[in-house]
Design a protein around this nucleic acid. Structure first.
Length: 871
RNA sequence: GCGGACGUGGCGGAACUGGUAGACGCAAGGGACUUAAAAUCCCUCGGGGGUAACCCCAUGCGGGUUCGAGUCCCGCCGUCCGCACCA
């Protein structure tokens, strides 16, 4: 049997059955071992998966299996992010009910995922569209509402005209809906909001504690929250005749130091002042409409001129009552940030400068380099903004003259505060999270609108608010709103006829706490607090970088909100985060532009690529992210059928660092397949010559055996560290090193006898190889483990222990340089002292040659590292 | 425009906190085994020079710091990603 080929088709299914039947991967909450929570971002059940979806699950699985072997109680669950628009689109296009469509997809994908041989505790599986799950979410919502974490407010929202729903700012990409791609319109609607901005400072500060997150993601979150320090202050307003207006104009600035350079004020087209003035000013009203029609896309903004409409009003300069600044309505001022009103200082802001040039407004420099002549310092086409570290001072600024920018900011802020016309103010870019969606396939918002009682939360006893199954999808808009009876209910407070809220929650809400539900997935309450506090934070979270802002920020907010409502004592959900790269594949198109699947093309020996069907040449495109639309996908079934899933897993983990994109190639999988067979042969051969596992270590270990043991233990040490740091490609390289060492020893001995010490070392090496590759190729490793004579499962076996003595060599090889160029190497005792090393180094032939007759000036010895002779 | 990452053989990529550049894999070429093929095993594999021992050049480009730079600093060039008028 041992000499036969390894048959993954048979073995993989068999081991998966064994793991299942023995419930190897089921996790108990009361297990005394230290906990470890590994989680991959759960999938949206869109249909079928391709191999590109598998990478992050496989990476998580390696970590999970490794941590199990290291003696942890590992939680590694899987669920489905199952609410969302595609189900509704399918309902419209294919006339299937979203529920049916979703659950069918879940069944298909679960089957496919199981092929990957993941060590998942399927007893904890959950789907967010299941009332079991969303009923708890409704309870959370009601609690959040009571705790003041939710509010209803009217606001300008992003309206997706195609999907007919509201989008969060985060869901607007380049001014278009993230799903539909249609240009987004502004509408004023009454919406439900989570008050994430209450936590802006906290969410920002705590980023510093997330040491195990990629810097990139931390930076993106910091920028998204966007804290800025400045001053909020008011201008008195006069009309053209000098008559003082009742309402002052409040603006926000971070550059109060440049106040003496102010030459105009501008308000947003949506500012109350602009609206009021527009009532009596047709020209302004037209300007406002023009601004609203202008897209918010990148392109539109690039193209858009800085345009303003002169209101005829003037703002009185706070420190120079004789100076009056014209007030404009300007298209570049955003209502959503600060006060929706600014003062413009053209000399030191490019945008203000463009505006000033267009409308002929003064440009007064107030900040200049210290070495510039203040009277001659002028601004041409570019606003002056000091570079990092550049020494500048205030000019043309009365009491600020000569000050640094920082001091001037302080001074102006203090004067506003003393005068009572302004105050220091911290602003954030982060907005509250609008969660209302005018959609059917989502979690119903558990609220009732009553004409007398106003907004009434659905009482706990009446939860869940279930989605009606009999919705129709034959017209645009919200099916819940169209439903003949669903929304008509009695007010829980007064009993009068009332209306249900027909909006459902943004699906990002669903994914903001699923990791907490996994800790006690069948609990009757929202969560079992003890379980959550034990399991969280997730020790290693793995997913795509596309969720760097939204999902992760929302989840961080949610755990804080759950703390406030008593569901946990924790604030941060994810201790370690890893963002993995995508799997790419070449694309293939026929001459007339039709995409072809990889299996529909053939690479001929002469390098040309042709269609299998027609024999016509095919255009090969650059590797791109696998996507159904471009057909550059490989199905897990096909891979499992030909190579087995272990080969696919090995290939996904080798070569490319996990955070980078990795190209899927046929030759790569074949290479992995060869390794699988090679490991199998290696183990089979070792079993024939080496003693059984339990044999005691021989008294004498000769040099060959000793050398192999060093290689083995070095690899063991390196692979352990590599997996801890998710450097799977390097772990695999280190495994190859032992495999190569064993192979060459086996080849050397041929059919000859093997000395007992070497045989023993060979077995140790083989066992180690199997144990180290177990997390990556678990099925093969189980099979080898059995062949090696072990009774139990490898999945339950502990990680081997490094013998530290084997990591330290008695003699070391030091490279010896002359003037920084390597000329020879020195084999010397590890503990040789400085002078012995110097003497030996100078005696080397290569060093002598390089030195010639030049005198030695200095010898640098870096212990254990290198010797450099300087002449 | 702002912010970030990256740039090493034919390819994917190694090189710990500055210390032998190219580990490991893929591809390619040569050889062994075989009637033949597949599989497997062995050898070569950054460029140039030399019979050879060896020598020179080389980590996008140009400078710098250092005994020593792929790694640190300054300035360019290029690729990729994120943000988008944030006052």
């Amino acid at each position: 049997m041992a000499s036969e080929r390894y048959n993954p088709r048979e073995a993989e299914a068999r081991w998966q059955r064994v793991w299942d039947e023995n419930r190897v991967f089921e996790t108990a909450n009361d297990d005394p071992r230290p906990k470890y929570y590994v989680l991959e971002m759960f999938p949206y059940p869109s249909g079928k998966i391709h191999i590109g979806h598998g990478r992050n699950y496989v990476m998580g699985d390696v970590v999970a299996r490794y941590k199990r072997a290291r003696g942890h109680n590992v939680l590694h669950p899987m669920g489905w992010d199952a609410f969302g628009l595609p189900a509704e689109n399918a309902a419209i296009e294919k006339k299937v009910h979203p529920k049916e469509w979703t659950y069918e997809n879940i069944a298909t994908m679960k089957e496919q995922l199981k092929l990957l041989g993941l060590s998942i505790d399927w007893t904890r599986e959950l789907a967010t569209c299941d009332p079991e799950y969303y009923s708890r979410q409704q309870k959370l919502f009601v609690d959040f509402l009571a705790a003041g974490l939710v509010e209803r407010k009217t606001s300008l929202v992003n309206w997706d005209p195609v999907d007919q729903t509201v989008l969060a700012n985060e869901q607007v990409i380049d001014g278009c809906g993230w799903r539909s791609g249609a240009p987004v319109e502004k509408r004023e609607l009454s919406q439900w909001f989570f008050r994430i901005t209450d936590y802006a400072q906290d969410l920002l500060d705590a980023i510093d504690t997330l040491d195990d997150w990629p810097d990139k993601v931390r930076l993106m979150q910091q920028r998204w929250i966007g804290r800025s320090e400045g001053v909020r202050f008011s201008f008195e307003i006069e009309d053209g005749d000098g008559a003082r207006q009742a309402e002052p104009l409040t603006v926000y600035t971070t550059r109060q130091d440049t106040i003496f350079g102010a030459s105009f004020c501008a308000v947003s087209p949506d500012h109350p002042l602009a609206k009021r003035l527009a009532q009596d000013d047709a020209g302004l009203e037209a300007f406002r409409r023009e601004c609203a029609a202008l897209g918010t896309s990148e392109e539109a903004i690039e193209r858009a001129e800085k345009k303003g409409y002169d209101t005829g009003l003037f703002a009185v300069h706070p420190f120079r009552p004789d100076v009056r600044l014209p007030v404009y309505v300007a298209n570049f001022v955003l209502m959503g940030y600060g006060e929706g009103a600014i003062f413009g200082c053209p000399a030191h802001d490019q945008r203000d400068l463009d505006f000033a040039r267009k409308y002929g407004l003064p440009v007064i420099p107030v900040v200049a380099p210290v070495d510039a002549d203040p009277s001659a310092f002028e601004i041409a086409d570019e606003a002056f903004v000091e570079k990092d570290g550049q020494a500048v001072r205030m000019i043309n600024s009365a009491f600020l003259d000569g000050m640094s920018v920082a001091d001037a900011k302080e001074e102006v802020a203090s004067r506003f505060e003393a005068a009572g016309t302004g105050a220091r103010k911290v602003n954030f870019r982060l907005r509250d999270w609008g969660i209302s969606r005018q959609r059917y396939w989502g979690c119903p918002i558990p609220v009732i609108h009553c004409d007398t009682c106003g907004i009434v939360a659905v009482p706990e006893a009446n939860l869940p608010v279930l989605l009606p199954d009999d919705a129709t999808f034959d017209r645009p808009g919200n099916p819940l709103d169209h439903h003949p009876t669903w929304k008509h209910v009695d007010c829980p407070k007064c009993g009068a006829a009332a209306r249900r809220e027909t909006d459902t929650m943004d699906t990002f809400v669903d994914s903001s706490w699923y990791f907490a539900r996994f800790c006690s997935p069948r609990d009757r309450d929202v969560v079992d607090r003890a379980a959550v506090d034990d399991w969280l934070p997730v020790d290693q979270y793995i997913g795509g970088v596309e969720h760097a802002v939204l999902h992760l920020l929302y989840s961080r907010f949610f755990l804080r909100a759950m703390k406030k409502t008593g569901y946990t004592g924790l604030e941060e959900p994810f201790r370690g985060l890893f963002t993995q790269g995508m799997i790419t594949h070449e694309t293939y198109r026929t001459e007339n532009g039709q995409w072809l699947f990889p299996e529909e093309v053939e690479r001929r020996d002469d390098g040309t690529v042709v269609s299998r069907e027609t024999g016509r040449p095919v255009v090969v495109g650059q590797p791109e992210k696998m996507s159904k639309s471009k057909k550059n996908v490989v199905s897990p079934e096909a891979i499992v059928e030909t190579y087995g899933v272990d080969a696919a897993r090995w290939f996904m983990l080798s070569d490319t660092p996990p955070e980078r994109d990795s190209e899927w190639t046929e030759s790569g999988v074949e290479g992995a397949w060869r390794l699988i067979q090679r490991l199998w042969r290696l183990v089979s051969q070792v079993v024939e010559i080496a003693p059984p596992a339990a044999t005691a270590r021989p008294e004498r270990i000769g040099p060959a055996a000793e050398g192999l043991r060093r290689t083995t233990h070095r690899a063991l040490d390196a692979v352990s560290r590599d997996i801890e740091q998710l450097r799977f490609n390097r772990a695999i390289a280190h495994i190859y090193e032992v495999v190569n060492a064993v192979t060459s020893l086996l080849n050397e001995k041929g059919n000859g006898e093997v000395a007992p010490d070497l045989a023993w070392a060979l077995r140790e090496a083989a066992e180690t190889i199997v144990r180290l590759s177990g997390p990556m190729v678990p099925h093969l490793a189980e099979e080898c483990w059995k062949v090696l004579g072990h009774e139990g499962l490898l999945a339950d076996a502990p990680w081997p222990v490094v013998e530290p003595a084997l990591l330290v060599e008695a003699t070391i090889t030091l490279p010896v340089q002359v003037n920084g160029k390597r000329r020879d190497e020195l084999v010397i005792a590890r503990d040789a002292d400085q002078s012995a090393i110097e003497e030996a180094a100078l005696g080397l032939a290569g060093v002598q040659r390089a030195l010639g007759d030049k005198p030695v000036r200095k010898i640098i010895v870096v212990p254990q590292r290198i010797v450099n002779v300087v002449v």
